[in-house]
Design a protein around this nucleic acid. Structure first.
Lengths: 99, 99
DNA sequence: CGTGTAAGGAATTCTGACACG
DNA sequence: CGTGTAAGGAATTCTGACACG
């Protein structure tokens, strides 16, 4: 019940205000697979606070001259690292249970 | 930076989905001073996750046959209690600093 | 009192495209 | 490549009112 940050509930206009990015930029970053908003039945995009945070990071990287392709690559690496940590944790847990 | 729950960013349609209440009900509870959404420049209402939680509680109380007036009274009492606790805490703190 | 609804208008968002570079 | 913009349409929201009870 406490995953507010991950709930997709914010419309693009509000995201634009929160991040300082234009709606055009936000939609473009979606096209480049950097974020994945949900949609209402009518087709309106809905973002989470997590998306907003991601967008701020993306914005900073773009300012540094990084391209969307590299940003996506970095993002993937980060996710794999997370997955790695998770698996490590589970393996450890299993190990401790066994002994 | 971590007050997601209090940020007014959700539109009424989404709040309706999250709570199961009709937009009519949500607007009416505002009229009865049970919640206080913000507005965009254009006049669109924006709610926080906190508002959503409040609405769920309100909904339960309405189901029990409670009226909006009593609900508002209860809400006020709760707030005064919170304030009381807070002051008590500060007085305590001040006391401990003095001795 | 609390809520549904039809009405008309305004604000918001959407897509595909052209432009610049 | 990344972003601005004008274009036309569709989805969303708004208010004030009438209805029922």
């Amino acid at each position: 019940m406490n995953n507010f940050k991950e709930k997709k509930v914010i419309t693009i206009g509000t995201v634009s205000e929160l991040t300082g990015l234009s709606e055009r930029q936000i939609r473009y970053y979606e096209e480049r697979k950097l974020i994945s908003p949900e949609r209402t039945k009518g087709g309106t995009r809905k973002y989470s606070f997590e998306d907003v945070e991601k967008l701020v990071l993306i914005s900073e990287k773009m300012d540094k001259g990084m391209g969307t392709f590299e940003i996506r690559k970095e993002d993937k690496k980060a996710k794999q690292k997370d997955l790695h940590e998770m698996l490590k944790g589970q393996i450890n847990a299993a190990f401790h249970i066994r002994k």
